[in-house]
Amino acid sequence: MKITVDVECTPEELRTFLGLPDVKPMQQALMTQIQEKMESSLNAVDPETMFKVWLPAGVQGMEQLQKLFWSHFATSSGRPKES
């Protein structure tokens, strides 16, 4: 014998029915703390300093990627690889 029961309720109603805790206030408090920490760290960093730190590595990485593409295209087209 097989019995099927369909229950239509909201997630909050089901959580209450099953006796599970409501974690929404805790999640909201944690998100507020995370947001405050992110805002304080962003305000402490000067945009010019960030660009000076990030840009050289980004440019070097782009040059390496470009060399990789050119070497791949040179070998796949049948032409000899340029150094």
Rank of each mutant, 00 (worst) to 15 (best):
M1C: 07
M1H: 10
M1Q: 04
M1W: 08
K2W: 10
K2L: 12
K2S: 09
I3C: 06
T4F: 09
T4L: 12
T4P: 02
V5A: 11
D6N: 10
V7F: 07
V7K: 07
V7N: 04
V7H: 06
E8W: 02
E8R: 15
E8F: 15
E8V: 15
C9D: 12
C9H: 02
T10G: 10
T10W: 04
P11F: 03
E12H: 01
E13Y: 10
L14P: 05
L14N: 01
L14K: 03
R15V: 01
T16F: 00
F17L: 05
L18V: 14
L18S: 00
L18D: 04
G19N: 12
G19E: 03
L20E: 06
L20D: 13
P21A: 00
D22E: 13
D22R: 14
D22T: 15
K24N: 04
P25S: 02
P25F: 00
Q27P: 00
Q28R: 13
Q28S: 11
A29Q: 06
A29F: 13
L30R: 06
M31V: 05
M31Q: 12
M31L: 11
T32V: 08
Q33F: 10
Q33A: 08
Q33T: 10
Q35P: 00
Q35L: 01
K37C: 12
K37Q: 11
K37I: 14
M38S: 02
M38D: 15
M38A: 11
M38T: 00
E39Y: 02
E39W: 07
E39F: 02
S41N: 10
S41M: 08
S41L: 14
S41Y: 06
S41H: 01
N43E: 09
A44Y: 01
A44N: 11
V45I: 10
P47W: 08
P47N: 12
E48T: 05
T49M: 01
M50A: 13
F51W: 11
F51V: 14
F51C: 03
K52M: 10
K52Y: 10
V53R: 06
V53I: 12
V53T: 08
V53N: 00
W54S: 03
W54T: 09
W54Y: 12
P56Y: 08
P56C: 04
A57I: 00
G58S: 10
G58N: 09
G58D: 07
V59I: 12
V59L: 13
V59A: 06
Q60N: 02
Q60T: 12
M62P: 01
M62C: 03
M62K: 05
E63C: 01
Q64K: 11
Q64R: 07
Q64G: 15
L65R: 01
L65F: 14
Q66G: 04
Q66K: 08
Q66E: 13
K67G: 04
K67I: 00
L68W: 09
F69W: 07
F69L: 05
F69M: 01
W70Y: 09
W70H: 04
W70R: 11
S71P: 01
S71V: 03
H72R: 13
H72Q: 08
H72K: 15
H72E: 14
F73I: 09
F73E: 04
T75D: 08
T75Y: 05
T75H: 12
S76R: 13
S77R: 14
S77A: 03
G78C: 03
G78R: 02
G78V: 04
R79K: 09
P80M: 12
K81C: 07
K81T: 09
E82N: 00
E82R: 05
E82F: 02
E82K: 11
S83V: 06
